[in-house]
Amino acid sequence: MARLPSPALPLRHSRRVITEPDGFGDAVSGIELSVDFQRRQERASQVEQFQSPAWALDFGEANVRTRVRGVLAGGWGSFCFAMGPGEAIWNGEAAAPGTIALLPPGKEVDGRTAADYEWLTAAVPADVWNRCLALAGRQEDGPDRLTVCRLPPSVAERIKLRLQECRALLKGAATPWLMDQVAEAVTDSFTTACELSAGAEPATSSMRNRARLARRAEAWMRDHLAEPVQVPDLCLALHVSRRELEYAFRSVFDQSPRDHLETLRLNAIRRSLLQGDGHRETIIAIAYAHGIHHLGRFSASYRTLFGEKPSETRRR
């Protein structure tokens, strides 16, 4: 489960390197993320987290293209500031550098990140979230789902510098004065994001429809990973044309349906090998169990995505 600030600790500070998809599982406070790699990670990713009972700050760097899903814990609200240079797509909306994605308590985030994606997330308890909405004059029409808004460059720079200053100070002694200063900075940033999100343009209906189709198709893929299904089977099952499906996947996941199905299988196989599942089974048997039936291509594709052979993963 993704870690949340503990009432028993005034401040919890951690920093770690991420080399595996599941290493991103708790990289954002309050959200249990499910992540698959879509391309090979050329250099390690990392995250630094500061968590208190009144707020949480995460500073991360994903040096790999990923597919991301997760749901925010019900008692917390969150925003994600995209610092770039890579960008993301969240719930069908483009989150380019300089944008903030507001995520209400209990709502889902679903999308992808490009390589070299740097983020800054802040999380606050629901009562602080509601207070920020009230300060922004939005207690009646606050966001009821993930909302992406582009910040004016001067505002984006101000928020980034202020929270990065908090990051530097938090590496020292966590004095009551410092904790109050960070809480004020987080609250002010949240309130500004709430104010600006009122004028944010929603994703077009066509983009929302493509995002819904891509997620529905991906769910079907996950349900049939153990079967030797191909993209035509998916099109027939969902009653959509191959062109329509291709356009949806390219727009939302920046992959073809065929490539997306392959990366889902390869990520699932890697998890199985790393967790020691079926340790008495051969790698070939594990591959077959995840719908792989072209073994020569499987080994090459696995090495391209993860930088090592399946046998090397199993030994680790």
Score class of each variant (00 low, 15 high):
residue 223 D to P: 03
residue 243 R to S: 07
residue 134 A to E: 12
residue 174 A to I: 03
residue 196 L to Y: 01
residue 232 P to H: 09
residue 192 T to C: 09
residue 227 E to C: 01
residue 132 C to H: 01
residue 206 S to Q: 14
residue 245 L to A: 05
residue 179 M to G: 03
residue 209 N to G: 09
residue 239 H to E: 15
residue 146 L to V: 02
residue 197 S to F: 00
residue 217 A to S: 10
residue 165 E to D: 10
residue 195 E to W: 04
residue 201 E to C: 01
residue 204 T to N: 02
residue 121 T to F: 07
residue 182 V to D: 03
residue 153 P to I: 12
residue 189 S to A: 12
residue 220 W to Q: 11
residue 229 V to W: 12
residue 172 G to F: 10
residue 157 E to A: 15
residue 135 L to D: 04
residue 159 I to D: 11
residue 234 L to K: 02
residue 139 Q to H: 11
residue 223 D to I: 01
residue 115 A to T: 15
residue 215 R to H: 13
residue 197 S to V: 03
residue 153 P to K: 06
residue 245 L to P: 03
residue 215 R to A: 11
residue 208 R to T: 08
residue 116 D to E: 15
residue 118 E to T: 09
residue 130 N to C: 04
residue 215 R to E: 11
residue 152 P to I: 14
residue 189 S to I: 02
residue 176 P to G: 01
residue 194 C to D: 09
residue 226 A to M: 12
residue 201 E to P: 00
residue 220 W to G: 05
residue 124 V to I: 03
residue 223 D to A: 12
residue 141 D to N: 08
residue 142 G to E: 00
residue 213 L to N: 04
residue 199 G to H: 13
residue 135 L to S: 02
residue 125 P to S: 00
residue 159 I to G: 08
residue 185 A to W: 03
residue 170 L to V: 06
residue 180 D to E: 12
residue 226 A to P: 05
residue 200 A to Y: 00
residue 225 L to V: 12
residue 208 R to S: 06
residue 193 A to T: 07
residue 201 E to Q: 15
residue 238 L to T: 02
residue 198 A to M: 01
residue 196 L to M: 01
residue 137 G to H: 02
residue 162 R to W: 08
residue 213 L to S: 07
residue 185 A to T: 04
residue 230 Q to I: 15
